[in-house]
């Protein structure tokens, strides 16, 4: 664990949880693809950031008091121009303890997955991957493997999913970049091993996999 990750975890402990920008930075330090994003604390930064990221965008509130962003209207998707961004800014900046806006490139959807980490009492760090979305807790179509994953075990974990055909082009659908998804799992596995003593679990949900790659679109890191 490098000094920057330790500092981020220390700050997070002071607040009580890990806000998304910090969670993404921690993951990125283990080479987990978290997509192009930035945090703006002033409108001028937001508009400049939008220009560098390009439209469409997703805007999310950053606030130490808002854990479940979507529940308070803290996530606005499909922002395609300055007017929409301004409206989003005005809404988000009025939320409690506003500390900034996370601007995220909006990904082509592809297949929506959940990738998770749990520090299991018996087995230590385990990595979970499954088809994401709201139904994950209903279908429970997930593979759970002990970290560190090998290349083979990461591939096998994907192939063991009932929904695996959705990743390889089911009924005319486009096949996703499996190698990129495997790389993502290996990076998450590395993060899991490194963060074993600091975190309890990690939710990367959703992770979008498409023909052009795999990327984390939202990250939650639960401290121990």
């Amino acid at each position: 664990m490098n000094a920057r990750v330790e500092a981020l975890l220390r700050e997070a402990r002071a607040v009580g949880w890990v806000m998304e920008p910090a969670a993404r930075e921690i993951l990125a330090s283990y080479a987990v693809p978290v997509g192009r994003h930035l945090v703006a604390t002033r409108w001028e930064e937001a508009i400049a950031g939008a220009a560098s990221l390009g439209w469409p965008l997703v805007a999310k509130v950053v606030s130490p008091e808002i854990v479940h962003k979507a529940d308070v209207g803290g996530v606005i998707v499909g922002i395609t121009g300055e007017a929409a961004l301004r409206a989003a800014w005005d809404h988000l900046s009025a939320l409690p303890a506003f500390a900034g806006v996370l601007l995220d490139e909006q990904h082509t959807m592809g297949v929506e997955l959940i990738v998770g980490v749990k520090i299991d009492p018996a087995f230590g760090p385990v990595v979970m991957v499954g088809l994401g979305g709201t139904a994950v807790e209903l279908y429970r179509d997930v593979s759970i493997r002990m970290a560190p994953l090998s290349l083979e075990s990461a591939r096998e974990a994907l192939a063991a999913l009932k929904a695996f055909p959705l990743l390889t082009g089911y009924r005319g659908g486009q096949a996703v970049d499996l190698d990129a998804l495997v790389e993502l799992l290996l990076a998450v596995s590395e993060a899991a091993m490194a963060l074993e003593d600091a975190v309890e679990s990690l939710d990367l949900n959703p992770v979008f996999a498409s023909a052009s790659g795999a990327v984390v679109a939202d990250a939650r890191l639960i401290l121990r």
Binding site: I114, D120, I144, R145, E200, S201, L202
Partner: peptide, 21 residues
């Protein structure tokens, strides 16, 4: 449980999958 992962990856689910693999 505090997260989706912790909810889906309950103690037995982890046992079953990790031992199964």
């Amino acid at each position: 449980v505090s997260s989706h992962t912790a909810s889906v990856a309950g103690d037995y689910a982890v046992f079953q999958q990790v031992v199964g693999a």
